[in-house]
Simulated scan of single mutants.
Amino acid sequence: MGRSSDVPLVGFAHSPVPISVQHVDGSGVTLPRVRGAHAHDFLMLVHIVRGTCAYRVDGRTWDLREGDAFVIAPGAVVDHAVESTGPPGELWSVLFPAEAVAPASWRDHPLLAPFVGRHRGGGQRIAVPPGDRATWRSRLADLDDELSRRRDGHAEAARAHLTLLLVALGRLVDDVPAESGDPLLAAVFAVVEERFAGPLSLRDVAALVGLTPGHLTTVVRRGTGRTVQQWITERRLREARRLLTSTDLPVADIGVRVGYPDPGYFARRFRAAHGSAPATWRTSPATP
């Protein structure tokens, strides 16, 4: 299920190291809440070391138990935060924006394939074998240590630890991402990736993949839970966030570079997605 316009979007706080780790241990599994249904623009990997907990994602409740890894894709609607459903446990979660791993389309990056899966985004549970769980916990602790102690080279080390976690996760997933095996959807995403920075409409994409706009809308919505225009907007705004974070370009110039030559329209689209104007977001990042 795609994120509707009335569901608030939680943005990732831009920083020199775009990775965040949360660790809960001993007094029940409870993470900071965002009131009501919400979505976020970052990826989330959760690992249950012991105990049980539950997430409700895109209308489905996932009951998680010891040894589970759980992934939540960008744009998924989370109805409530993690809650303890049993004895006190231990849980780790890693949050990171797609651009920390995939500068282009995150859905096509092999390390992020588990976040697509058969569910076309949303949530997915992957069982970590008992023999691998100590290694998983150690990798999470090492990542947390690098981010906390901030020693020389910690940014590179943190990215390396995240990569190792994603490689381990990918090795546990035995299915091919649904979108990767659908030539039509792959063609749509390729068009969006190639042309998002210029004028691009549903009609343009439909013509390039050889379908009518109505038929293409139906196919993409059924396959991904979103419309073509929503995917175009997501790609443009993701690039806008990257440029706002990593460059000193004026906001108007960034708008032009991501396909919004009208500064006012760019500001409205950005505010609708992130709750603040681009310049405000740049100086006052949201907290995940």
Rank of each mutant, 00 (worst) to 15 (best):
E66T: 10
V46E: 11
I72N: 03
D63S: 15
M44D: 14
L45I: 05
H40C: 00
D58L: 01
T52I: 01
A54M: 09
W62S: 05
A69Q: 10
I72R: 02
W62H: 13
L43Y: 07
L43T: 06
G51Q: 09
R65Q: 13
D68W: 04
A69E: 10
L43G: 00
P74V: 07
I72F: 00
H47Q: 12
D41A: 11
I48A: 14
V49D: 09
L64Q: 03
G51T: 13
I48D: 10
Y55V: 10
F70Q: 03
A54V: 14
P74F: 06
D41W: 04
E66M: 01
E66C: 02
L45A: 10
G67N: 03
V71K: 06
F42V: 05
R60A: 15
H47P: 10
L64S: 03
H47T: 12
A69P: 06
V49W: 07
G51W: 03
V46R: 09
I48T: 15
P74H: 04
L64C: 08
E66P: 03
A69Y: 10
A69N: 14
F70P: 05
G59K: 10
R60L: 13
R56V: 12
L43M: 12
Y55Q: 12
D68Q: 07
V57D: 00
R60P: 03
D63Q: 14
G51C: 09
A73M: 07
L64R: 04
R56W: 01
D41G: 10
W62K: 06
D58A: 12
V71Q: 08
I48M: 15
M44F: 09
G51M: 11
H47D: 11
